[in-house]
């Protein structure tokens, strides 16, 4: 339960860590759009995706995310790769441009199947890596503050942005506490003869109620205590609050924004103007 790699914050003081979380959220969304914009030919697709993949890898490298963690978060993709390959091989496209891979007594498999599957997998891998840059380099609390900032315009339509952000950050804060509580109650019930691992199904179910009910009870108690403590310190959700940490855009943030905007714009231009870089260089690519 404690060693999931995806979405884990990696404490470090790197350039990417220092970038404003608002910029990082925007950049992530922009890069995701760039990743999923379709290009016209296979060669262009793999060129653009390849560049984005390298960019994501570089960012992860700068953020000091361990290579092992990257592999761990990509591990579950294996199943998808095989699944996609099977689908594309069994259900070929109408127009195939890359030629025949093999022909077994009339069962024709085109190279296009592999290319299509590879395209999707490369996109997914890049997508996971880009979101990993965001979660690995931004503290969950900073993320919620940044989300609150993005939600502020919604205040016009009476959307409670500050309250939502407060709720989310409290929820995040209490995940480790809840895990700790759960392990404590599990131990206490194990001492009373509950076998959470072996045991018959019915026993496991009663064992689960013996875990969940105490957890609910202590969570309710805790939330009431927290609410009281907050009120004692004068918390009023309707008041405008100031922050210990204020966001201010630095040069690096602006540069980052410009870089990402340039990438997105470039990808859109390539797509909209039907530009084939290979053809410009005189190479005939498919």
């Amino acid at each position: 339960m404690k060693n999931f790699a995806l979405g884990k914050y990696v404490p470090f003081d790197s350039l990417v860590h220092r970038v404003d979380p608002r910029v990082k959220i925007f950049a992530t969304i922009a890069l995701l759009v760039a990743i999923f914009l379709p290009q016209e030919t296979y060669s262009m697709t793999f060129l653009v995706e390849g560049v984005l993949f390298l960019l994501a890898l570089t960012l992860l490298f700068i953020s000091h995310v361990r290579f092992r963690d990257i592999l761990l978060s990509l591990r579950s993709l294996w199943f998808l790769v095989i699944f996609l390959l099977v689908i594309y091989i069994v259900v070929p496209k109408k127009e195939n441009v890359l030629g025949i891979a093999w022909n077994l007594n009339g069962w024709i498999v085109y190279w296009d199947a592999f290319a299509e599957a590879g395209k999707i997998v490369l996109r997914l891998v890049t997508m996971i890596m880009v979101t990993m840059v965001l979660t690995a380099t931004t503290k969950p609390l900073d993320l919620t503050y940044a989300l609150e900032w993005y939600m502020t315009p919604l205040k016009v339509v009476r959307f409670p942005a500050a309250e939502v952000a407060m709720t989310v950050s409290i929820a995040l804060r209490f995940i480790p506490t809840l895990l700790e509580d759960a392990s404590r109650v599990m131990k206490a019930q194990a001492s009373r003869g509950v076998d959470f691992e072996h045991g018959r199904l019915w026993q496991k179910i009663t064992g689960l109620t013996a875990l969940i009910i105490p957890l609910f009870v202590s969570s309710f108690l805790r939330s009431e205590e927290l609410a009281n403590a907050m009120e004692c310190r004068g918390y009023d959700p309707r008041k405008k609050r100031t922050r210990y940490r204020t966001f201010r855009l630095h040069v690096r943030d602006v540069l980052g924004l410009l870089l990402v905007a340039a990438i997105l714009a470039g990808v859109i231009v390539l797509l909209a103007m039907h530009i084939d870089l290979f053809a410009l260089w005189g190479i005939h690519a498919l």
Binding site: V185, A188, Q189, S191, R192, G193, A210, P214
Partner: peptide, 21 residues
């Protein structure tokens, strides 16, 4: 088999009232 042991050695944790359900 841990069950016979857990029957033999009873454990009352700190604040055991949180285990009632």
């Amino acid at each position: 088999k841990v069950k016979p042991l857990r029957q033999k050695v009873g454990m009352v944790f700190q604040f055991p009232e949180y285990q009632l359900f």
